[in-house]
Design a protein around this nucleic acid. Structure first.
Length: 416
DNA sequence: CCTCCACAGGAAGCGCAGGAGT
DNA sequence: ACTCCTGCGCTTCCTGTGGAGG
């Protein structure tokens, strides 16, 4: 078979293969459906809280808690979408601004997004935070609107930058004459309160809402509803749907995960040329998602983080259960020398290890070995073969995969 | 009981890139 | 051209600490 006829085959198969999906976009997690099952109560609650805006009054600030995939963002976007629609109808001067704080990354960029929502242009760097804040105030005062700001994943911002931004925002209404600001904070972390200044907390959480995780039955309903729009009739087996719901329920009831599983399972089935999604495909999808996540994470690491991961890989194969920071530094130091690059300090290495831990690539635990000090025990959390494959394909690190570090052979024999 | 190891992890500050105003 | 700002990655310096062995 020639190359072109092979490709034709792939494309033809794809085009003629409408046997699985009707509309796969429905399964993406940024898709907001026009019904959110099992969140009617929250929709109602939030609707009641923001309704005063329609009459030109400020609404209470709201703080929303809940783990990932519990529908927080979907509910907020849904309610505010309707609010905006109603506001147009009644001519209420409402402006909305949705900022994902984790993606924005800094105070500066969070303020900048808010300015942009008001139509003010802000360079993406170069100004002081105070200057951007002033511009925000000026454009707010000029526009004379009820400004509603949604700070999604606010906990991420607070952890890195503190609560200064929130403090400024909550105080802003005291200064503004013609405009009012309302805040909706969304947090994945239930302990957010502990990080907040009491003054910020009291004004931010005038109202609070907590989103409970979905249970397996609820997830099932959610999936069934979406699947109806996403798959063609009879292309999804009841068992496959149940398995997606069960797997996601086991993982703190994450609807986002359930939807991902369903979508990828559909894609697997499609690729295999099947016309019905089975449990088998869901299992396959589960592996797929995890595999892709890890490979992508490894490939996107910086050179130094890759070296750290590789060092742990080398220590791991010596059979000892859990490398410690000092050993990792020794191996890392040697590998860096081998590549001819300057090694980072041990302090910095500790931070990199914590980052890898947070990504779920490894597991780091602080342990005390008594007389032999206090350190971190680090184990790989992913398959060794995966690290091997990814780094062997890396043109700089490739030759270090089978390298035997000297410091391993003459390692001082510490008793566990 | 105290000591003392081998670190953890906070604080401060540095040099750099990218950009603004003047 | 100059000075100022920021975020980022990093180093330097530092204080804090759980528990085995004395």
């Amino acid at each position: 078979m020639t190359d072109s006829s092979l490709l034709d085959d792939v494309f033809d198969k794809f085009i003629s293969n409408v046997r699985i999906f009707k509309d796969r976009e429905v399964l993406r997690h940024d898709y907001i459906p026009n019904r959110l099952p099992h969140r009617e109560q929250q929709i109602r609650q939030l609707g009641e809280k923001v309704a005063p805006l329609l009459k030109g009054a400020r609404s209470s600030n709201v703080l929303i808690y809940g783990q990932t995939g519990t529908g927080k963002t979907a509910v907020v976007k849904y309610v505010l979408g309707r609010l905006e629609f109603k506001a147009k109808e009644f001519g209420a001067p409402i402006k909305l601004c949705y900022v994902n704080c984790r993606l924005a990354g800094s105070e500066y960029r969070t303020f900048a997004s808010m300015c942009q929502a008001l139509g003010a242009t802000v360079p993406f760097t170069g100004l002081s935070v105070g200057e951007v804040f002033d511009r925000l105030k000026v454009s707010l005062e000029l526009s004379g609107t009820l400004f509603m700001v949604v700070l999604d994943e606010a906990d991420a911002l607070i952890r890195t930058c503190g609560d200064g931004l929130l403090y400024e925002l909550t105080r802003m209404n005291e200064v503004l004459r013609k405009s009012k600001v309302t805040l909706i904070g969304i947090s994945n972390d239930l302990r957010l309160k502990e990080f907040l200044d009491p003054r910020v907390l009291s004004s931010l959480s005038e109202e609070e809402m907590v989103f409970r995780p979905y249970d397996a039955d609820e997830l099932r309903n959610i999936l069934a509803e979406r699947a109806d729009a996403a798959f063609i009739k009879n292309a999804l087996s009841e068992a496959a749907l149940g398995l997606c719901a069960a797997l996601a329920a086991a993982e703190h009831g994450d609807a986002r995960r359930a939807l991902d599983l369903l979508r990828v399972a559909g894609e697997v089935a499609e690729r295999e040329g099947g016309n019905v999604v089975t449990e088998e495909h869901v299992r396959e999808a589960e592996k797929h998602i995890e595999h892709n996540r890890v490979v992508e994470a490894l490939n996107n690491l910086t050179l130094h983080s890759k070296l750290v991961a590789l060092s742990i890989y080398h220590l791991d194969k010596t059979g000892s259960r859990g490398a410690i920071t000092g050993e990792i530094f020794d191996v890392y130091d040697e590998l860096s020398g081998e590549l001819g690059i300057a090694p980072l300090t041990q302090r910095r290495l500790g931070t990199l290890i914590n980052e890898l831990d947070a990504m779920g690539l490894l597991n780091a635990k602080v342990v005390s070995m008594g007389r032999y000090g206090r350190t971190k025990k680090i184990r790989l959390e992913i398959a060794r073969s995966l690290i091997r494959d990814v780094f062997a394909a890396d043109n700089r690190l490739g030759r270090l995969v089978d390298y035997e570090p000297h410091c391993l052979s003459k390692r001082s024999d510490r008793r566990h």
